[in-house]
Every structure is written in structure tokens, then in C-alpha cells.
Design a protein around this nucleic acid. Sequence first.
DNA 1: CGGACGGTTGAGTCTCGTCAATAAGCGTGG
DNA 2: CCACGCTTATTGACGAGACTCAACCGTCCG
Lengths: 229, 229
Amino acid sequence: MQTVDIPSFLRHQPLFQQLSPEQIDALVPFTHEVRGLKGQVIFQKGDPCDGMFLVVYGRVKLALSSAQGSEKVMEIIHPGQSFAEAVMFLSRPCPVMAQFLEDSMLLKVEAEGILQALEHDPAFARRLLAGLSLRLHGLVRDVERYSIESSLQRVIGYLLQHIPEDGSEAQPQLTLSVNKNLIASRLNLTPETFSRMLHQLIEAELIMVDGRDITLVNVDKLKAYGNRE
Amino acid sequence: MQTVDIPSFLRHQPLFQQLSPEQIDALVPFTHEVRGLKGQVIFQKGDPCDGMFLVVYGRVKLALSSAQGSEKVMEIIHPGQSFAEAVMFLSRPCPVMAQFLEDSMLLKVEAEGILQALEHDPAFARRLLAGLSLRLHGLVRDVERYSIESSLQRVIGYLLQHIPEDGSEAQPQLTLSVNKNLIASRLNLTPETFSRMLHQLIEAELIMVDGRDITLVNVDKLKAYGNRE
DNA sequence: CGGACGGTTGAGTCTCGTCAATAAGCGTGG
DNA sequence: CCACGCTTATTGACGAGACTCAACCGTCCG
């Protein structure tokens, strides 16, 4: 069981990194560890929500579930990322459910601590606002994808978006962070359709797939491919 | 040409209504009127954006446009509502375009004014955060609709969401605020499909339609209808 | 070895979009 | 006042894209 130095972890969060040591210390009493095993639910859609979460290690998914029991992944949260900031500022039930994808450790920061930090630091407010704005842009992008892109385009978009940053390799490579069923759901596709789209790109010699490892053979052609065929 | 008393208008905005008169006055130099005619574009997707807008009178649509030229309405903004708050806090291009639906008058508040107000009033920060959070919830709801609801369910959801507040009438009535093509696009449907879904609801004797006026004959049955047939 | 899980593939179906024709409503101008 | 054109809305026939259902395979793990 890993342990974590809460103040130092908080200090390295993008959200908190401009807070003074005193402000970080003020946050600590409102922060506690949350550990969970793969499959456990952190909160259900409809639950009240009084804090935000930071992922220390592990992975978390945010998902919606339909009346018929099927499930739609809205976001996959990785270590260093946070979620549920937006529910803190509204006295409203959570619009999504959150579940551990693997054994994980989170930090939960209670809303009260955040509100207190807000009182004393306008720069923190700006950071929070920027964070939420970023989230909002991501959602607008999602709506755009779901409403005007075909499934093939969504797959291509996903691949292009997940090219690693390091330099300009001719044939960038990426590894899916989770299994293909989850990616498919995130893209609003069935696993079958996702598989077929990948297959189509393989046939067109635009990518190579080996399990979760994907090589983009020709990035430019890949970008162009979705717009015609 | 209508005129408007800027300070008093600002004071009545939900976002600003807890600011002191001095704070409102400080905002005024950053605020100016923007008038436009039906069809004029306020900003394009991709434009830089350095302020937020309040609708005084008229209507505005936020929309995405696809590569093939078709357009998808993301939001219809009515008098008293605001938009583009989220782009202020990021140095990023606008993710959507904005266009006047009719001859309208807006107030534009420059980002600088907002940031200044933020410096001096933590309560204002909380309001802004709450505002963005609300927007975010709306988008989550949209993603939910687009990804797990059928077109019939989306139409029903729209009708139910737009029942006027006033008391519990047995057969609530509503009037579409804009033409059906726009509503259809907002729901991510073609006008044809939207028309067919309304027709289906008429056949089932759940609603009555007269132009833009719609009467919900049986709200409970309407709620239930989407889940089976 | 057997089962669960993740992934692929094929066949059939269905929802929804496309295309086309038509009709109704409305403002303009002759 | 009516003719005309434009926009908005409706309806039908058709087709395509994505989902469903099912079978199947490989791998991991008890």
C-alpha cells in the first residue's frame, strides 16, 4: 500500500501549484485519501457531491447509464487529473457516475476547503475558472464529434489526439491506455464498430495494430482519409 | 433604436447582481453595446475571444459547422442570458460560431473587466464558477441525450423541459421560441425527422400542434411513451 | 481443463438521413 | 388585390451507417 505526502502532492497539481505553502496547508484538513478496488463505485449519478477528486494512481471512469442498463463512458481519468470540480459549486446531484477502473488511490478535497481557498486568492479563482473552461471546451468538442462526425472520423480523431508529444516521429506510435471496449464507449461506438473501423484503417495501410499498440503509418493521409471515403 | 442603461442592466444579471454599485461601475468602462441584424455573424469558430456577451434583446445562436457546410445548433440564447464566458479564461480560439437570429442588441463585457472584478470579490468568483458549472451540466446532459437517447426521446425531453413554470395546468402549453428547423438542429435531428416525431406524438394523442404552439395532452403518458415504443 | 474476458467477424435489422415533391404562409411589388 | 418568390413545414420513397445478435477465437487464470 503506497502512501502519499498530501501537501507535496497538492502542490504539484496544476490547479493548486500557484498557492502559497500556507494556502496548501489550509487545504490539508479538508483532504483525505480514498482508496478503492477495480469496479467499486465512487459515486452514483444522482448522488449529492461535496468535493472534488484528484487521481494519485490508478484510473477512474465517468459514465452515464441508460434506462436499458447499457453504459456510456464520458471520460477516463488518469493519474494527475481531477474530476467533479463542477458539482461543488452547485447544490445539484451528480450528472454522472464514477467508478474505479483498477485499484486506485484518490484524494478528495472537500468543497469547503476549496471555497475557503477561493476567499483568499483571486489567482486560485482564475485557475479554477480556467480549469472548468477547459472542461467545457472538451465537452463542446465531444458534442461536435457525436453530432457531426462519422464513426470512422471519431476513431481517426481519437488516434490523432493521442499521438505522444515527443518530437516529430515519422510514424508515431501510441498505446491505448485502457481496453478497446472502453475506448469504443468513450467514442460512442459499439466494440464491434470500433473493431471494424480499425480494420478499415489497417486495410488502407494507414495504421498498424498489435493489441493495444497502434502505429500511425501515415499521419497526413490518416487526417485526410475521413473526409472522403 | 432602443437604448439601455448599462449599469442598471448589469445589476440585474444573475451573474452580477451581488456586486456592489462601485463594482458595477468599475465594469461599465469595459462594457459596450453590440447591435446586429438577423444573420450577421458575431464571431466565427476559431476567432480569438476576449469577452463575454449578454443578450439585451433579440436572439443569438451558437453553432458548429461541419466540413460539408451543414450546421449544428448548440444553443439558442435568449434575452437575459449570456454566452462566451468560458472562452475568456483561456487563450484559445472560440470552439463555436455565434450569429444573430434576429435584429438584436448585446452587451459585451471585456475579459479584463471581469478579471478585475474577480480580483476584488471572491463572491463574484463563486458566482462565475457556479455559472460555468451550470453550463457544464447542460453540456453533460446534451452528451447524454445525443449518445443514449433516441430521436423520439429527445423530442419528448425537449417538450417536457420547456413546459412553462406557471402552476400545474392539466394540459400545459408551450410555444416554440424559434422555427422548427432550429429546434431540430438543436436536438441533432433533421427537420424531416423532427416533423415525423411530432406527428407520431400527435397520432398517439399525446400532444396537439398548431404551428409553433404545442399542447401537451397528457404529460405522464408522454414521459412514459419514449421508453417502450 | 474450463471459464471469463477481450476482441473479431459475419449476417440481418432498424433507425435515421437523403432526396424529391408538395403545400402552406408571408412579404413584396406590380 | 393578386401574382410571385422565398421560407418553412410536411410527406413519401429510398438508402446507408451503425447497432444487434451470434458465433468464434485467443489468452489469461484459477
